[in-house]
């Protein structure tokens, strides 16, 4: 590939700015995210971490007033290039949302939805296999295998979120974006999902937004601290939590701002 940056980063962002109608939500963010790691975005509410996350799979396109400038590349390809179809991009970059949002369909159909629209399975047997594999990867297979045809909305909150994760990985993405995936869950369900994230890191490039610093410390290798729309500090998680360079990062992790 021609203008691939010299790093081996999966995702690289340069000079990214995001404007909503008249607010400047993201200011000149530069970041490189490595494959097969978990990267956490932390920061106080409204700091832009979710907005930036949604730039990576162009979910911001669905908001009329949102304007993204700058350069975001995945595998060296500019995802905001006019030739890129966001539909194709999103098959490659999966996303899990804050609140579990299973479709009002059966568990099976929830997981099979992505593979079906992307035509990933040639027949029913292959589809069954994808569904099973995804549910296994999402650590939901044992709980769900006997009720694949019952509605996904009937599951508990934690199970619903794992179903959404299974749904996301069923399309065989390379990047998995998670927008505060545990904020609507109780501690036990949170622990299960965190464990799962640890597992997912082996096969995906995982980016997780969280407002829980403990969670970031638990699950991630790299952490980026956002404040007022700027990326303040980006480094190894251990470094951020033990010896941050920027005073703002320090105040945040010690609980003085946010």
């Amino acid at each position: 590939m021609k203008d691939t940056p010299m790093t081996n980063a999966k995702i690289s962002a340069k000079g990214v700015d995001v404007h909503y109608a008249d607010t400047h939500a993201i200011k000149d963010v530069n970041v490189e995210i490595a494959d097969k790691t978990v990267t956490a975005f932390i920061g106080p509410s409204g700091c832009g971490k979710s907005t930036f996350l949604r730039c990576i799979n162009r979910m911001n396109d669905t908001i009329d007033s949102c304007r993204v400038t700058g350069d975001i590349r995945i595998d060296g390809e500019d995802i905001y290039d006019a030739k890129v179809d966001p539909v194709q991009l999103r098959a490659k970059v999966g996303m899990v949302f804050q609140k579990p949002n299973p479709f009002p369909k059966s568990i099976y159909d929830n997981v099979a939805y992505g593979p079906k629209i992307h035509g990933l399975a040639r027949n029913k047997a292959e589809l069954d296999e994808i569904v099973e594999k995804s549910l296994r990867k999402a650590a939901l297979w044992n709980e769900a295998k006997d009720r694949l045809l019952s509605p996904g909305t009937g599951l508990s909150g934690g199970q619903q979120q794992r179903l959404c994760i299974a749904r996301a990985i069923a399309t065989a993405p390379e990047v998995l974006l998670m927008d505060e995936p545990c904020s609507a869950l109780d501690p036990i369900a949170t622990a299960q999902v965190e464990e799962l994230i640890d597992e997912l890191q082996k096969s995906f490039c995982v980016v997780i937004v969280t407002h829980s610093m403990q969670q970031a410390a638990r699950v991630s290798q790299k952490t980026a601290f956002f404040h007022l729309g700027s990326l303040v500090e980006y480094d190894d998680t251990d470094k951020i939590f033990t010896n941050p360079e920027d005073p703002r990062t320090e105040s945040y992790i010690s609980g003085r701002i946010g």
């Binding site: 979910m59 991009l89 999103r90 999966g94 949302f97 609140k99 479709f103 399309t171």
Partner: peptide, 19 residues
């Protein structure tokens, strides 16, 4: 959130609406 879930899986708008 339901629409977002579908769009994030790479569904087109019409697929999201119909399915």
């Amino acid at each position: 959130t339901m629409r977002d879930g579908s769009l994030a899986l790479g569904a087109t708008k019409s697929e999201t609406i119909r399915q």
